[in-house]
Amino acid sequence: MGLKAAPEDQALLLELQEFDTRLQQLDHRLRTLPELARLAELASAGESLRRAVAEQNGALEDAQAELGRVESDVTVVEARIARDRGRLEATSSVKDVQALEQELAALGRRRDELEEIELVVMEKVEELETALSSIRLQLEAHETEAAATTTARDGAAASIEQERAHIAADRATVSAKVPTDLLELYEKQRARYGVGASHLRAGVSSASGVALNATDLNVVRAAAPDDVLLCPDSSAVLVRTAESGL
């Protein structure tokens, strides 16, 4: 003997199905919030920016160390020049004068070379500092957007969860009115096929969107009002109402 349920109890399944459809839609909205996609993009971009900051900072530190070495070499050469000039002023030996003058000339050339290198390295340091500052500004703007997007995501999710809680409460109220065996069938079919109840309206099953053929319609017409039927296309509980066109 097939399952029996009063027509008004079967009609409650349509309300349940509407609630469940809305809950599924809300779950989909929650999973596909545009902020989630943007946050994923920002996370990837943030990693790239942080790597760029680290690489640029490393390059700057190397350039600064190089500048420090060149400046140290310049200091050493200038100290030697000062020393040799002092010795030159203090000596009366022609031989020492010649040697010191030659060394001073060599030291002067070396200082000129080092100063040219120093200028090049200083320009490199300035360029790297400018580039690093630019990347840091980009990262700061990126983090600001990420924070704002996170706030927007949380707000949208909270709104959806609130709506979901209201619908779930209404669903619980309705499901409590449905006979246990009928509710179990509804839940079973919904879990298996995705839809638990289908409204037969003007001969068309709302779950499948397909019109029942003549044979199936004859079966439905021959069934008692309290017979629980299944849609031949969607396998959902087929609910008959005054709109069914029977």
Rank of each mutant, 00 (worst) to 15 (best):
M1S: 12
L3C: 04
K4R: 13
K4T: 11
K4L: 06
A6W: 13
E8Y: 07
Q10V: 02
A11C: 06
L12V: 07
L13G: 02
L16V: 08
L16W: 10
Q17T: 04
Q17Y: 07
E18W: 12
H28T: 14
R29L: 14
R31W: 03
T32A: 11
E35S: 13
L36V: 01
A37C: 02
L39E: 09
L42I: 13
L42P: 02
A43E: 14
A45K: 13
A45W: 10
G46K: 08
R51V: 12
A52Y: 00
V53E: 14
A59V: 05
L60E: 04
E61P: 01
D62F: 03
E66Q: 14
L67D: 03
R69V: 12
S72L: 01
S72V: 00
D73E: 15
V74H: 00
T75M: 05
A82H: 10
A82N: 10
D84V: 06
D84C: 05
A90D: 14
D96I: 00
E101A: 01
L104W: 06
A105E: 12
A106R: 12
L107R: 05
L107M: 04
L107D: 15
R110N: 09
L119A: 15
L119D: 11
L119H: 09
M122E: 14
E123C: 05
E123T: 11
L128M: 05
E129G: 06
S133W: 06
I135N: 00
R136I: 02
H142V: 01
E143P: 00
E145G: 03
A146Q: 13
T150Y: 11
T150E: 15
G155N: 12
A158T: 09
S159V: 14
A165Q: 15
A168V: 04
A169Y: 06
D170F: 10
S175V: 06
K177E: 15
K177N: 09
P179M: 08
L185F: 10
K188N: 04
R192Y: 05
G194I: 04
S198C: 08
H199Y: 07
H199C: 05
L200T: 06
L200Y: 05
V204C: 00
S205M: 05
S205R: 07
A207R: 11
V210R: 15
T215A: 12
D216H: 08
L217Q: 10
L217D: 02
V220L: 08
V220H: 13
D226W: 03
D227A: 12
V228R: 11
V228G: 00
A236W: 06
R240L: 14
T241V: 03
A242H: 09
A242R: 15
G245I: 07
